[in-house]
């Protein structure tokens, strides 16, 4: 097991609320590590609606999910947060010294006196197609993500899906594999046009196949896939023999291991008080869409407010002997130093 990384606060989830936690905690000199299952910051804003305009962020009449994420990243940059992407927070336990130890599914071990759960609607997990018996093959010859490209070398590979993940991996893996077939429901792709053009060129050159249809059945033995049965519009049912199957049907949110952390839950949400946004476990906070209290509204701005109040109590837990002084960024040279704006903005 790797050695524990020690920090002040571990934040689960790097969506807008997770990022703003860093800001409020940073103003109080608290250092943060963030864990997120996605490969980049932004959470739902980045994964579900990067292009969609948001109209209810104070002082931003309109801002896209991606732009909001980018602005928050810029705002928290002075506090040097450390990100652990592509990892799911999987286990939480209390240590003898009163601190919390968080393990991820990539074996990262973090230790801190304070945990903030800002996991939104939960972890983004792959949508699984309703193919009977598919679970027998998962992790053996059927996958929903690529961890190592080498694992596909010289295989007969089928990729399903029409988005960027499906197209990007088709293009990346094509030179390695023995054969490649892309299966999509219709002959129209949501992926970037450039990737679609490259894919079509490979199909035209006979370097890969494109099949329009729905995968209905899997056959194989002992977890080793041998063929997939595809229902097509123009050719009827066809069988594709293959030794690896990669399915990219998008992501959906599930609460996941957070449900096993031993916290009280209310319909898959985490109840908190409205003074500190602390959960049933002292030192564990929940901020943003994942928390619940009377009158809760699932708005980004609610999460921002919650982050500010959470940070006050986090400070008291981490520095029980220090007095917390409330300061404004407009007037406090101390805060301005932390933000790195004092020199250039000083009168």
């Amino acid at each position: 097991m790797s050695e524990a990384i020690k920090t002040d606060v571990i934040i689960i989830g790097a969506g807008p609320c997770g990022l703003f936690n860093v800001f409020e905690l940073g103003l109080l000199d608290l250092k943060c590590h963030l864990v997120d299952i996605l490969d980049r910051p932004g959470g739902q804003c980045a994964e579900l609606y990067p292009e969609k305009p948001i109209y209810d962020i104070p002082a931003w009449p309109v801002i896209s999910g991606q732009e909001l994420t980018d602005r928050l990243m810029e705002q928290i940059a002075p506090f040097n947060p450390v990100f652990h992407f592509n990892q799911m927070a999987s286990e939480l336990k209390k240590l003898d010294n009163g601190h919390w130890q968080l393990k991820t599914d990539a074996d990262t071990v973090l230790e801190a006196p304070v945990i903030v759960i800002s996991a939104g609607g939960g972890s983004f997990m792959p949508k699984k197609p309703p193919i009977p018996g598919l679970e027998e093959y998962e992790g053996k010859s059927v996958f929903y993500s690529v961890r190592q490209m080498e694992a596909f070398r010289d295989h007969d590979l089928v990729i399903a899906g029409g988005g960027d993940s499906a197209l990007d991996w088709a293009l990346n893996l094509q030179p390695l594999v023995k054969s490649l077939t892309l299966v999509h429901r219709r002959d129209d792709f949501r992926a970037a046009p450039d990737s679609v053009n490259k894919m079509r060129a490979l199909v035209a050159d006979g370097k890969m196949k494109l099949v329009i249809g729905n995968i209905k059945q899997v056959t194989g033995e002992n977890g080793q896939v041998e063929s997939l049965s595809v229902k097509t519009k123009d050719q009827g049912d066809i069988d594709l023999s293959c030794s690896r199957f990669l399915a990219f049907y998008g992501l959906t949110m599930k609460l996941g291991p957070v449900a096993e952390f031993g916290l009280n839950l209310h319909e898959n949400l985490i109840p908190v008080d409205t003074e500190k946004f602390q959960t049933s476990e002292p030192g564990i906070f929940a901020v943003g869409d994942i928390n619940y209290y009377p009158g809760k509204l699932k708005l980004i701005l609610s999460g921002f407010h919650e982050a500010a109040l959470m940070a006050q109590e986090a400070f008291r837990i981490i520095h029980p002997d220090k007095k917390l002084r409330f300061q404004y960024t407009t007037s406090s040279s101390d805060l301005q130093n932390k933000l790195g704006v004092n020199d250039k903005d000083a009168a």
Binding site: L48, G121, T252
Partner: peptide, 11 residues
């Protein structure tokens, strides 16, 4: 309805 009504999921 995981995206909250913004036509970003299909739930």
């Amino acid at each position: 309805a995981e995206c909250g009504g913004s036509c970003c999921c299909a739930t």
